[in-house]
Design a protein around this nucleic acid. Structure first.
Length: 295
DNA sequence: CAAAGTTCCTGCGAGC
DNA sequence: TGCTCGCAGGAACTTT
């Protein structure tokens, strides 16, 4: 599930362990994840220090002393765990609970740092990816160049959304899932944000367009809903979903706060709504919504 | 069977 | 008529 809040949670967990540290050894156990690793991946990392750890959309970006940037995406099932020498078992970062060492078959990369800390990337489905790119080429990188604004940045506002939505016949669900519209939302947070905004996922995106030159109330509500749900999810450490192996404290709790996601047949949690959460498929993905209060 | 993500492809219809 | 664009829908990657 790693959507923006989960990736941000992982970034924050990783930051104190990586920034200022040098890679001593990088163990790459297979030639590819979703795509082949870049040429000389391990060698280009070894000996370099991490100068900063950033996030863009669902990507973690590690800036290196070599003026290259390590791009890392968790895909659907990617997890990172940190092990410190003499400090007990490895700690899990982010949404999935993962018992390090219990699934060595899918430990694809191990980053060993000079202070003895190691960071392990585990990804059973291998939809994740990593790349290395020169710092000054990051904006034009294939995976970065089409991304829309960060939803928590000021540039993402009702005016922007209205302009972008004008004339679009795609439905709101697809419009918001599109990383070119806004970067970092996925299936869960789109469902939750639309519910909070009281908007049907099947509405046409053009319903957000400017009306007599001004952003609509709908667009304002949607922007606020997106911001709120993401901020609350980050504060809760993201969401932790199914198929985990062990519970040991590394887990987010936002899933306990879902209003609609994965709640088909249950009562809508909006105060005094009384509707039942429904599920339908849009663009091949499940959409959860309340037909009563989302119009 | 369904799953948190993204890319790529085909085919259709609108508009220039 | 032909071209381009946006969009819908599907397949693909893979494992549990």
């Amino acid at each position: 599930m790693p959507e923006l809040p989960e990736v941000e949670t992982v970034r924050r967990g990783l930051e104190p362990h990586l920034v200022g540290q040098r890679f001593r050894r990088v163990i790459q156990r297979r030639p590819d994840l979703r795509w082949p690793f870049p040429k000389r991946f391990a060698e280009r990392l070894e000996g370099q220090a991490v100068t900063a750890l950033r996030r863009r959309a669902k990507y973690i970006l590690a800036e290196l002393s070599s003026r290259e940037v390590l791009i890392l995406h968790l895909g659907m099932s990617g997890r990172l765990s940190v092990a410190e020498p003499g400090n007990g078992p490895a700690r899990i970062l982010g949404d999935y609970i993962y018992d390090p060492g219990s699934d060595p078959h899918h430990d694809h990369v191990v980053f060993e740092m000079q202070n003895g800390t190691s960071v392990t990337f585990n990804d059973p489905r291998r939809f994740g990816c990593m790349d290395l790119v020169a710092e000054d080429k990051i904006e034009s990188h294939k995976l970065m160049k089409e991304l829309g604004p960060e939803p928590l940045a000021n540039s993402f506002n009702a005016q922007y959304l209205a302009k972008r939505a004008a004339g679009r016949s795609a439905d709101l669900k697809a419009f918001l899932m599109d990383q070119k519209t806004v970067a970092g939302l996925g299936n869960i947070y789109v469902c939750e944000a639309l519910h909070r905004a009281g908007l049907s996922p099947s509405r046409k995106a053009s319903c957000l367009a400017l009306a007599s030159g001004k952003p609509t109330d709908r667009a304002e509500r949607l922007v606020s809903a997106i911001r709120d749900v993401l901020n609350e999810a980050i504060a809760a450490g993201g969401s932790t979903l199914r198929d985990y192996r062990k519970t040991d404290g590394g887990k987010g709790s936002f899933q306990e706060t879902f209003f609609v996601y994965d709640r088909e047949g249950e009562a809508c949690l909006r105060k005094a709504c009384g509707g039942i959460v429904k599920r339908k498929v849009q663009g091949g993905r499940s959409t959860f919504y309340c037909g009563a209060c989302q119009r």
